[in-house]
């Protein structure tokens, strides 16, 4: 994993300032989406060898949740955007 992550708000910062949550490719289902949709949301994850989008939190920085797109084999980081802005830029 990159030793530095380019936070869109704070610039390149050490990875240790961030907390990773995991797969950002899943959206929270509607409350009435049914048992299976919720099982998929809570328990199943994309786990690709290669490009992957994840939620990272700049915990010791601006405290924004970010979407980090990176490679799970080379650990290269391709893009970092604010989670709330994902629809516009990701």
């Amino acid at each position: 994993m990159a030793s530095l992550i380019a936070c869109p708000h704070c610039g390149p910062r050490p990875k240790e300032e961030f907390t990773v949550r995991g797969d950002a490719g899943i959206s929270r289902p509607a409350p009435d989406a049914g048992e299976n949709a919720w099982y998929v949301y809570v328990y199943l994850r994309d786990n690709p060898r290669g490009r992957h989008k994840e939620h990272w939190h700049h915990t010791s920085g601006c405290r924004r949740w970010l979407i980090v797109e990176r490679d799970t084999v080379t650990h290269a980081v391709y893009a970092v955007v604010d989670a709330a802005a994902q629809g516009e830029t990701a």
């Binding site: 929270r28 924004r64 949740w65």
Partner: peptide, 17 residues
């Protein structure tokens, strides 16, 4: 304390912006 704060921020920023 820290975990709840992170959780609230996740919900506010990523789930319900």
């Amino acid at each position: 304390a820290a975990g709840v704060m992170n959780h609230l921020e996740f919900c506010a920023q990523a789930l319900w912006p």
